[in-house]
Design a protein around this nucleic acid. Sequence first.
DNA 1: TTGTAGGCGTTATCAA
DNA 2: TTGATAACGCCTACAA
Lengths: 333, 333
Amino acid sequence: MAKATTIQDIAKLAGVSKSTVSRVMNKTTAVHPEKAAAVIRAAEQLGFAPNQFARSLASGRSMTVGVITQNLGSPFYDAIAQGVIAGLQGTGYSPIFADGRWDHVVEEDSIRSLQGRRADGILLIGGQLRGTDLKALCGTLPRVTIARHLPSVQHCCIYVDNVQGGFLATQHLIRHGHTKIAFIGGPHHHSDAKDRLAGYRKALTQANIRFTTKLVLEGNFSSASGHAAVHTLLKSGEEFTAIFAANDATAYGARLALDQHGLRVPQDVSLVGYDNQAESAFMIPPLTTMHQPAHQMGQAAAAAVLEKIQGQPIKSRVFIPELRCRESVATRT
Amino acid sequence: MAKATTIQDIAKLAGVSKSTVSRVMNKTTAVHPEKAAAVIRAAEQLGFAPNQFARSLASGRSMTVGVITQNLGSPFYDAIAQGVIAGLQGTGYSPIFADGRWDHVVEEDSIRSLQGRRADGILLIGGQLRGTDLKALCGTLPRVTIARHLPSVQHCCIYVDNVQGGFLATQHLIRHGHTKIAFIGGPHHHSDAKDRLAGYRKALTQANIRFTTKLVLEGNFSSASGHAAVHTLLKSGEEFTAIFAANDATAYGARLALDQHGLRVPQDVSLVGYDNQAESAFMIPPLTTMHQPAHQMGQAAAAAVLEKIQGQPIKSRVFIPELRCRESVATRT
DNA sequence: TTGTAGGCGTTATCAA
DNA sequence: TTGATAACGCCTACAA
């Protein structure tokens, strides 16, 4: 680190004490306009950038909020992260990221590291840690969880209702006359995937359609898994006229596999995805999917943690995903 | 910020001085095993996380590298950012992000803020600032530019040869017998777009194909712009048998527009994209595109800036994009 | 309105 | 091998 200029240097150049410099930098007390001008001039001349470390050490606030992500790269989580950045913009707080990699050990380390950097608050995007562990780890540190629902009221969570999302997607298909609807899910242990499956089952039950395990395939939220699942499904010989994929990427893979088997979408098979990824509107045909207000959630979470830092009580908030009807669903005739 | 435990607390609990605590935390000097054990026990008991501010203030190193991004959300830049994160993993350095928003004013502020946080080095992903301004701003602060080529040897740049990329993509089309090749570019002022166009022209020239401005459309790297461009092209009546899109998103939009006009890919029109986005392999048909080693570039840049921080001299590095042949290109018969 | 002095939690330099 | 003690750069009473 190159030796940077300090308020001391400025004080000397401007012919005042460093307290005065501090005062004009922070506008904390009125100072004589002339001296203030001299300070500002000196600061510009020396290209002064206050040392945040010293500032935080002295003031006790870091003006940062720690953001724990889990492997960026998924459109949904990326959009949340962008929402967080946008929500922090202009508030004086900077986000500082740490990766939890969907691993509770790594996640714990990341939180520790953020605490070491004295983050004033923590935002968890997804994650694996149990609520009780989280609480033990963070103590009184303001904390908001995004895209994940921790049951206890003690936790502030900004999340989407995946059961409802799965329900709405399936219901849409049912309303178009489909009864043999396949579901390509995520990993069995993933709560989002489980919830969407629960919603699927709920819609089936409500419509008096028998649930068949043969129509439920396990995927991993990747296009490749959607592609493979359709092959498996076709080979199984189980009849189906529609597919509900647990996310858009899975739907893309499924769509390609269908095409390779000479099945048309939506004439032969209807398809619904989940996430409303940017690319989905330009698929062939444009994909009907569930939209999640990811960016908005990120912003809401940023605002929430800021309020909490200011000592205000905040509560959890659920978002309901919305159906985006496009052209991948046809009425079963 | 809740009152956290300090080495002083640990010192008291372990019955040693804080210097000793510091020593066992940093393994800087051997200490009596028994005392060391006591310190470690005390630290665990109190859930100690060293205050990075105090640490940095005292040591003069922040153990962070500032990363300037420009609007996350594009697959290419996201992949670079992930590469940077991966490259820093386990090095003891944490990335701290700031958004430049493709705006030189914002970018300058971001760099200033990073300097205030005393980053030990800076990584610029893309950006608008001129090389001389950058140099003036950063001074001796180790700095590496990614995905952008600054002419002077003074700058260390990790970038891809977009001219070559545009050339290879176009050449691929030419080799399949195409001579009427449309190009859907990016904004006129965007250097990546300009370079890819230059490569396109170079390939045409080399094959003795006349360049027609009517076949060059302006886009903005979005699917919507690709979609619109094809409409414009079709309406213009200009003949073409192939399209080279400046990125994959643009190609998706173009593909949909073609489909809506009853044109088949690749039988009627061949299509090549740029970026090798994850979704491209699952388009219908799977999209032939130029692959850029974005993740690898991010990692390389992280390694480079670390070396520079250690005082080693480093030099720029060019990556050459590679053609990924899939099924969206057919031989012109 | 201004300056002085103490403290924030570490690291680093001395002696011991 | 240890323990004082002086930085590190800034903020903030407190006093002038």
